Computed example of a mutant assay.
Amino acid sequence: MSVPLLEFHQVGFSYPHTAKPVLQDCSFTLAAGQKIALLGLNGSGKSTLFYLAAALYRRDRGEIYWQGQRLVHQPEQLRQWRQRIGLAFQDPEQQLVAATVAEDISYGLWNLDLPPAEIEARLHQTLLDFDLVDLADRPLHHLSLGQKRRVALAGVMALAPTLLLLDEPTTYLDYQQQQQLQQLLAQIHQRGTTIVIATHDLDFVYSWADWIMVLVNGQIVVSDRAQRVFAQWSTFASHLGTPLLLELWQQFPPAWRQNQPLPRTTAAIAQIWQKNLPVLPNPD
């Protein structure tokens, strides 16, 4: 049996001067290679969970493991930990620190004390991968929100993390920017990076995720394959809502849905619709 990539064992965390913990007895495991959606209401602790996973915050209780190795808050161990786990914040302004696109992407690479030739090679490849070559010398404050999100993500991926955490990446993006983001995520996943996305965008989650985690009152109450979670979605629909395609699927006649896997795309919905429509007589 393979060792989980990341594990939380009864992790607890409270912000200073607050009576109620944000996370309490929070436990879950992540397997490598998955596309995972972390769902929960505002205030449920999704961002805090990410900050703990990336070792930006220090847990109050419990243990966190990376491939069986316990998280220790010592400088060298933290440096190695943060190379393995990349976090893109909800607000890219919190992550962009340099003057230009190229300088910002290079910033984390210089902090790794890599040889200049390797930094230059990684920067060039990252600019190509994220379609940022033409923007390399552009000042960051001249970029659109979608471009800033792309630069922030590029800066994280230049470090070649094994696990990528994305906090609300689709917020305020227009349709074209969302399509570009999905293409980037597909490329990143195909290269072997495990991805976890915290989001309220259920339509995106329904078509994208293969694993679902639901966070309620600081605890993971569900962690399972997306097909199984959405097959029993009525448990969560009242407070999380329902993806549009799933809602449409639930309106199909029971005979159409019997023994069928959940359709996750509009093409799959259309195929089932066409298969079950009665054949109309030829007007001729």
Rank of each mutant, 00 (worst) to 15 (best):
V214P: 03
A158E: 09
M157V: 08
M157N: 08
I195A: 02
D131I: 00
A154I: 04
A152M: 11
T193I: 13
V156K: 14
A154H: 05
Y206T: 04
E118Y: 02
A186Q: 15
V205M: 05
Q178S: 09
L145C: 10
L128C: 14
A198K: 03
L181D: 02
P139T: 03
L153E: 06
Q187A: 04
P169L: 12
L215Q: 05
E118W: 02
A209Y: 01
R228Y: 00
A198M: 07
L132E: 05
D174L: 01
D134T: 04
T171P: 02
D201V: 05
S144D: 04
Q180P: 00
P116V: 14
W208G: 02
L184N: 00
G218D: 12
D113Y: 15
K148S: 08
F130E: 01
R225N: 13
D174A: 06
T170H: 10
Q177V: 01
Q177I: 03
L135R: 11
T162F: 00
A209Q: 02
L184E: 00
L166M: 11
R225W: 14
D134H: 04
L173F: 08
Q182R: 09
L185A: 03
F230R: 03
R122F: 09
Q187E: 01
A154G: 06
S207I: 00
H189Q: 13
L140D: 07
L128Y: 07
D203I: 00
